[in-house]
Design a protein around this nucleic acid. Structure first.
Length: 615
DNA sequence: CTAGGGTTAG
């Protein structure tokens, strides 16, 4: 935005009274122009006048914090207002040390801090988890008599929450003279951040009055911890009680839909945004795009993306990541090129998504190119995750030696469980037992509570027919008390969400579902389906043909009209047998089946899968 | 001049 008329007018004909105009400045050039006026009028030591100038320099988006400091530094007796403004400026730039140094200077200069001073100082202590400094500032809040200042107290509450110190947060809360909706809400998210969702709910229910923010904090807490039923319950309660659904609530609910894979609900919420004129800012638009991508409606995500008048970096990142999980690597690269064309500087996440797009589509050379490109052209040092993507990319493509080399030689840091997971996963795909065993064992010790790590190595042994070793790993896992996540598939039809666990029979229509399942399996057996019985997969305890995914597909065939797309989302990766079965079902029943697994999408259509059996 | 609640890989 260029504000030519106003600023050029000012430059051409400076106003007689700069004080009035300082509050309406929109550029540093104007401020500097007015500053020279101020000097000529002999007002350069006037706190009221200079305070306005410093305010613009320190806080405005087009300001200049260094200049603000220079102005401040020439003041003989800066007042509390000026100190507060400057501290806030440093806070906005995450310069915590500078905030505290200014505060010390304030005290040294015998300027009394006021109610505006402490919120910023408290927040400064949050930036780098300065617990000791935070407690000292807390002592000053008491000493200077701000025990009943809501802003200071709420910020202290927030500070202890951000330290993860709920006892201290609670103590502040309990001692507060008047608690407002912000205090309660802060406490709710505090409990949520520590995983204490039930305590959060108790706080929520004890609140004397709740606004949308409070409702949203609770909904966000449920979504964060995957309690979707409760989140949707609160959302419906909000609607029946006619509480305003603002963009934050909408965003939290969209995030819940995204995690669940609930496309119908997500669509409804998107429709609600359009119908009710909810302000569509960049973040909300990004949330919507992410929802459509991860709920399997890629085309709609692209439509929303293209229709956006302004995009943030996360919007681009989301779109690239969305294309990646749908196996549309080439398109993802095109989007990335457009991003560069529009001079948007890519960040770490951009390259993570670009590399992941290459990995999912088998674009080895492109991946190598962008891995170099990120450092050479954009000056971004690859992080652990980027090396992880490269290991994934090379490993899936069968270049196991190169992948191993990254882990052992190229990476400047010690590979974490995720990187090793990618390597061992590749070893499993390509049946490299020696390498897989070596790193698989290391992986288990690195991440001993994660059932998936044991299952991966057991599966690797199973593919090699090493059944003794399979048993050994199983036993190790049981001895350590590590529980496997049960396979869970979700299917949503007409807004109703049905969940299936492998082998379950307590669904009200269980009988019909199992008979449809039998019919389904018979039909694909006649076109060559052979159950893949010699592979140990994640849901082995249950019979292969009762995997949650097959139950969900049977239910989908039972409940949808011929030709309608069946959409399923599941919490684990698709097993080889279900993958093969799904391909054949898509052909035998002439249905498109879209499955979202833990990592990516599979579009089954006419006996083929969009992943090209490459997952 | 001040506080709480929303998006980003595998």
């Amino acid at each position: 935005m260029i504000s030519v008329p106003i600023s050029s007018a000012l430059v051409a004909a400076p106003p007689c009274n700069p004080v009035q105009h300082l509050d309406k400045c929109s550029s540093m050039a104007e401020v500097k122009q007015l500053h020279s006026q101020i000097i000529r009028l002999g007002l350069s030591s006037d706190n009221d006048v200079m305070g306005r100038a410093i305010k613009f320099c320190a806080l405005s988006k087009s300001g200049d914090l260094v200049y603000a400091y220079q102005l401040f530094d020439k003041m003989p007796h800066p007042d509390a207002f000026i100190y507060n403004i400057l501290i806030r400026g440093y806070l906005q730039c995450h310069l915590a040390r500078e905030c505290l140094i200014l505060y010390l200077r304030m005290l040294k200069g015998s300027v009394l801090p006021n109610n505006f001073t402490f919120p910023s100082l408290v927040r400064a202590c949050c930036i780098n988890d300065w617990v000791e400094e935070g407690r000292q500032i807390h002592a000053h809040v008491v000493k200077f008599g701000f025990l009943n200042d809501g802003f200071s107290q709420n910020n202290l509450l927030y500070m202890y929450v951000s330290f993860g110190s709920l006892e201290e947060a609670r103590r502040v809360f309990d001692k507060m003279l008047q608690r407002d909706v912000v205090s309660w809400t802060t406490l709710i998210s505090g409990y949520s951040q520590l995983g204490l969702v039930n305590d959060a709910y108790e706080v929520f229910r004890s609140m004397p009055n709740r606004n949308s923010g409070a409702w949203n904090a609770m909904i966000a807490a449920y979504v964060e911890h995957n309690h979707f039923h409760e989140a949707f319950g609160l959302f419906n309660e909000m609607r029946t009680e006619n509480i305003e659904l603002d963009k934050y609530v909408i965003a939290s609910m969209l995030s819940g839909c995204t995690k669940l894979g609930a496309l119908e609900q997500g669509k409804w919420i998107h429709g609600y945004v359009n119908k009710n004129g909810i302000e569509m800012d960049t973040k909300l638009a990004t949330t919507i795009i992410d929802m459509y991508c991860k709920c399997g409606w890629l085309e709609k995500a692209i439509e929303v993306f293209i229709g956006l008048p302004s995009k943030g970096i996360s919007t681009w990142n989301c779109m690239i990541g969305g294309l990646a999980i749908h196996g549309r690597g080439e398109v993802a690269i095109e989007v990335f090129k457009n991003m560069e064309k529009e001079m948007i500087a890519p960040d770490n996440i951009t390259f993570l998504n670009v590399l992941s797009a290459c990995a999912h589509s088998g674009l080895v050379e492109t991946g190598r190119h962008y891995f170099k490109h990120m450092t050479e052209v954009h000056g971004l040092e690859p992080r652990m995750e980027h090396y992880g993507c490269m290991v994934d990319l090379l490993g899936r493509a069968g270049l196991l030696e190169e992948a191993k080399n990254i882990v052992e030689e190229e990476m400047p840091m010690e590979a974490d469980a995720r990187v090793l997971g990618a390597l061992v996963g590749a070893c499993k795909i390509h049946g490299n037992i020696e390498l897989g065993e070596k790193f698989g064992k290391r992986l288990i010790e690195l991440d001993p509570d994660n059932s998936g790590r044991y299952v991966l190595l057991a599966n690797l042994y199973a593919t090699a027919g090493k059944w003794d070793d399979v048993v050994k790993i199983r036993r190790l896992m049981n001895d350590r008390g590590v529980k496997k996540a049960p396979g869970l598939s979700v299917i949503e039809m007409e807004g109703m969400i049905s969940e299936f666990v492998a082998g379950e029979r307590d669904h009200p229509e269980s009988r019909e579902i199992y008979s449809k399942l039998d019919e389904m399996l018979e039909k694909i057996k006649s076109v060559g389906y052979v159950p893949n019985t010699d592979i140990e997969e994640e849901e082995k305890e249950k019979p292969l043909n009762h995997h949650s995914e097959k139950l969900a597909i049977a239910f989908g065939l039972l409940k949808t009209k011929p030709g309608q797309t069946i959409r399923i989302s599941k919490n684990l990766r698709v097993c080889r047998d279900c993958h093969q079965a799904s391909k054949l079902i898509s052909k035998a029943f002439d249905r498109e089946i879209i499955v979202r697994d833990r990592n990516r999408f599979h579009h089954f259509r006419n006996g083929q899968c969009s992943c090209n059996d490459f997952w």
